[in-house]
């Protein structure tokens, strides 16, 4: 982040989470996962070293998209699916701003799917926070593009026949330069992932599992609740072997291209396991494909953390460079020369 590189002045340092709250009443349903995400974002913002006025949060439509109203920064609550495109225009023209997109599974993967993938491929230095609750909440409970097959909702009384998106695999497919996953119920991990998303220079795609306690309560329970979380969640840490389990006694190994669960002990040690490397483009694809239905037998645990991070030229930087090169080659634009053109004649 260019802004982060600027010296952090005392005033910014002194800010707290409260300084990022607004006087607007927060209107999500009581118990909504969005509250936790808002709290963690407000906690992280004072720590990233960006003056409040240089932070812009842009959202589309949906429950999550109310977010900007509750953040005392610049913000825009725009139209359905287009936050990513609006943010792209803003970032292209004002590269020094820290631009965040807050969106949901319907907003960014259904109506706004097109802009999401194009933002990722262009690699604008924008942080996308995708609140995935696998349901349409604001329109009161229809299945979403991330809902599981057979899901019974208001619009699918016989069960949904739509095959769901795998958001992180989609982001990898669109050449996202930072792809990660976290959850509303793990504040520390969420804070860490927000910071990582901010620190990454390029498009950051952070999927946040978020519970909708009204229309899809418990959708991620298996990953978030103490009883099941250790067995179901695989936390990715750079340079560390892939270990999980309540006793930290299980690991992931690659059998060819296929990840398999192995028990540690009996001659199997951590040295035999897959060691996570965020820079490994090929292995990141396998990690994002660890997307088994947790209800299925012998399913793999679901990874959380940074799947992939890479350095790639940002669109806004390339755009700026082209302008600088054009000025260097042709000189700064001269309006009179432009209007006159190459061939003129004179009437006396």
């Amino acid at each position: 982040m260019s802004v982060a590189e600027a010296p952090i002045n005392e005033a910014i340092k002194a800010l707290t989470a409260k300084d990022f709250a607004t006087d607007q009443e927060v209107r999500w349903c009581p118990g909504c996962g969005d509250y936790s995400i808002l709290a963690q974002v407000q906690k992280v913002m004072p720590t990233i070293g960006v003056p409040r006025e240089n932070i812009v949060i842009i959202s589309g439509i949906g429950c999550s998209s109310r977010f900007p109203y509750y953040m005392n920064t610049y913000g825009m609550h725009s139209i359905h699916g287009r936050a990513t495109a609006i943010a792209s225009g803003l970032k292209a023209s004002r590269p020094e701003l820290s631009v965040w997109v807050v969106t949901g599974d319907g907003d960014s993967l259904s109506i706004g799917g097109n802009h999401t993938i194009h933002l990722l491929r262009r690699n604008f230095d924008i942080n996308i926070l995708l609140f995935n609750n696998q349901i349409y909440g604001l329109t009161k409970g229809q299945y979403s593009p991330t809902s599981e097959v057979k899901k019974v909702t208001k619009s699918s009384p016989l069960g949904s026949i739509d095959h769901p998106f795998n958001p992180s695999a989609l982001a990898m497919g669109a050449d996202g330069s930072f792809v990660g996953r976290t959850m509303d119920r793990d504040p520390k991990h969420l804070q860490m992932m927000l910071t990582r998303a901010h620190q990454h220079r390029g498009a950051s795609f952070l999927e946040i599992y978020q519970n909708c306690n009204i229309f899809n309560d418990g959708a991620f329970e298996i990953f978030t609740e103490k009883a099941t979380k250790p067995e179901e969640v695989l936390f990715l840490e750079q340079g560390k072997p892939l270990i999980f389990g309540a006793q930290q006694n299980k690991g992931i190994k690659l059998d060819g291209f296929r990840p398999v669960v192995v028990e540690l002990g009996n001659g199997v040690s951590a040295d035999d396991l897959w060691v996570h490397d965020e820079k490994d483009f090929y292995k990141a694809q396998i990690l994002t494909r660890m997307f088994d239905d947790p209800r299925a037998d012998n399913h793999l645990p679901r990874p959380f953390g940074v799947f992939f991070e890479s350095d790639r030229l940002c669109y806004e930087d390339a755009m700026k460079m082209q302008i600088e090169e054009a000025v260097a080659a042709k000189g700064k634009g001269n309006l009179d020369k432009l209007l006159r053109g190459n061939e003129i004649w004179e009437i006396l």
């Binding site: 409040r52 006025e53 240089n54 900007p68 610049y74 825009m76 803003l90 020094e96």
Partner: peptide, 13 residues
């Protein structure tokens, strides 16, 4: 416009 200290605000549709 964003970047102007003290005028942080939210707008929308």
């Amino acid at each position: 416009v964003p970047g102007t200290a003290g005028l942080e605000h939210r707008i929308g549709g």
